[in-house]
Design a protein around this nucleic acid. Structure first.
Lengths: 140, 140
DNA sequence: TATTGTTATACTCTATAACTATA
DNA sequence: TATAGTTATAGAGTATAACAATA
């Protein structure tokens, strides 16, 4: 094998920079990183319990409660007791939430494109393809 | 632009998994992640102050002190006052440190290869090339 | 007075445990 | 009694501020 740097050593600073840029991009939209993650998850479809949502976004169930409080307060999600089992909370994104999330995502990806623009079309496509593959191989 | 997932959303779980694997790989070598990072930086050449080393590895200067204490105690680095300015500490890796670091790196990259093995040779090369490029574009 | 390294303190993020309400 | 959600507590990691030694 030809010599190379460690994957983590290369990708960790990159991810740190991406997250910092994402936080800056989210600020004008008035939502936190966790709020964005939650909205993104709910944009794929409603979820029946907060624990399931937490699991889907890779968080502890206690960690998203404040986020859900604020998203509900802002009218970006709905959160109602399941009539069939009033312990559970049915979670769904609202139209306003969907608009907010998609506007935020457009800004985030616009920033990311500045980085990707330095790549050849072939490298860009290969990198995105591999990133998706590896992210899926590695579990949630 | 064709639709795609956010870079951070793909790469963050990947990096988390890589770091977790790295920590497991380092355990038999008896060094922490920060110790490995410090050894790797010093394997590229000695450094004249702890602050410069901290900066080089993306850490706060107060955060690496305990790590340096342990590395020195274990004989993996040397750390002596600069005769020309006794406030500064000259830092260098020892032969034992170099051996430890390289053995650790071999194990780490062996684990990473399991992931990369799923890729076509072209995708593998492109991914490593792009990761290096982006990591450099993004600052230290 | 300024700089290097160190120690002490506080803050943020996260996880664990204890509690409530429903079943 | 078991489960979903919430609140309270504690732990890890990090950054900031105060301190000691040297210049």
């Amino acid at each position: 094998m030809t010599e190379r740097r460690d994957l983590a050593a290369m990708l960790h600073p990159l991810v740190k920079a991406l997250i910092a840029a994402e936080i800056r991009a989210l600020e004008p939209h008035g939502i936190s990183m966790w709020a964005y993650v939650v909205l993104s998850a709910l944009d794929d479809g409603p979820v029946r319990t907060q624990a399931a949502l937490a699991e889907a976004v890779g968080a502890d169930k206690t960690r998203i409660i404040g986020t859900l409080d604020r998203l509900q307060e802002a009218g970006l999600i709905t959160r109602e007791p399941d009539p069939g089992d009033r312990r559970a909370r049915l979670l769904a994104i609202t139209d306003a939430g969907r608009r907010r999330r998609r506007a935020a995502q457009a800004d985030i990806q616009e920033g990311e494109e500045l980085l990707l623009a330095t790549l050849s079309p072939g490298d860009r496509a290969a990198f995105l393809r591999v990133a998706e593959t590896l992210a899926n191989n590695v579990g949630p």
